[in-house]
Write a protein that binds this DNA or RNA. Sequence first.
RNA 1: GUGGGCGUAGCUCAGUCGGUUAGAGCGCCGGUUUGUGGCACCGGAGGUCGGGGGUUCGAGACCCCUCGCCCACCCCA
Length: 442
Amino acid sequence: MSKLIQPRTLKGFRDHPPASMILRERLIDTAREVYRSFGFAPIDTPALEYTEVLLGKGGDETDKQMYRFSDHGGRDVALRFDLTIPFARFAAQHVPALGTPFKRYHVGSVWRGENTQRGRYREFVQCDFDTIGTESPLADVETLLVIHELFQRLEVGPFTIRVNDRKILTGLLQRLDLVDQSVPLLRALDKLDKIGPDKVAAEMQAEAGVSAAAADEVLALARLEGSNQAILEALPALVEGSELGAQGVERLRAVLEGAVAGGAQPSRLKLDVAIARGLDYYTGIVFETTLDDLPAIGSCCSGGRYDDLASLYTKERLPGVGASLGVDRLLAALEELGRLEQRSTPAEVLLVRFGEEHDGELLGLAARLRSAGLAVEVYPEARKLGAQLKFADRRGHRLAVVVGDAEWASGTAQLKDLASKESLEVDQAELAAACRARLGSV
RNA sequence: GUGGGCGUAGCUCAGUCGGUUAGAGCGCCGGUUUGUGGCACCGGAGGUCGGGGGUUCGAGACCCCUCGCCCACCCCA
């Protein structure tokens, strides 16, 4: 006898049983509905790309984290580590035919060879949406509205979209003549509410080589407090003399006001000047969305504006703005918060089976329920009724339909509500409507 | 990639200074109840103690390596 292969999965790669997958699909379905309702159109791209297409735009870190290898033809290839870079390539190839502005959404797995942690995996699903070919603030506003609507619809509890504009940071650095050190400075600033201002200042001096006084000036941002409005009023002084900085402040003001006018709850939008974001391609507005009850797990939906994303692939300028929903991280957060109702079957209704005599009629009944829009499973064996009801309950079916000799004779069915234990006798002709009423009332 | 913590039944975990056939609760299967589930009672299945090597008369326990999970750094969804 040959030795068994140990069933196992790679670190950071996970299986998804039904109870998990049903939730994932529901979340993704909601994202699709919201994106589509704003006019974003679906696209897909290959998981595998030429390495040269993926390299270079995200910075050294992402390059290191890429799954990269030679294919059978000796080509240097890699698995995508996000959906934005492949979209830039896609846009360079197809936008001439598609026209701009172009709005797309894209649901797919991405891969990063980094260490795993709670809410961090090596394979995870993102739901991206982006608008390219326009610099209109309306596109920025819409991006915020989509996130707002999405998190509202997902019923994740209280959340906060933290918003900033990179131009403000750049403007400040211009005024202080520190533009050359912007990458390490912003990286340090981004850690503000994690490690505190003292450590940020220390890191700025160590990593960016700036003076204590300069670090303190950058941290003047962090001392801004109060309402979005109050911060907006204080910002111009900090970026004085920088055209870019002034633009950033005005843009941010317009976008925040626009989002509120567009229906976003003001309390959900928080101007946070410490948000910088690591991916080097952001040039304008940036944002991160966290759950108020579990901010530590990190951002579940982030993005921003980039004004030259496709420049590696085309001479045509393609500015854009978009964001990415991290499905796996959001689910990890919701699970930890115990906010998920798990169910292991998509079928609301289970039809009990007593024996083979009435199989034809039983299947016919199931077919009628399905054509009425219900998801129906027929139990395949003739086990004891109690066992079948127990099965239905454990599996998560909400209704059981019991039809035995007596019911077949009278053309009726017994409809059981598994949760309330109530049971009622209905005409088979009325069964679908009765199921609907029952399910709708829950 | 760096540093720390942890891996015992499907799940949550006991397991004393190293000592004989490795335990509990929950879950699962069966029965009490061959057309009425969640409760109760009775019974049952299920463990290479993550894996490999070493120390020892003897290892779940001690040492080394390895794999995995968790936490921090880094970075990010």
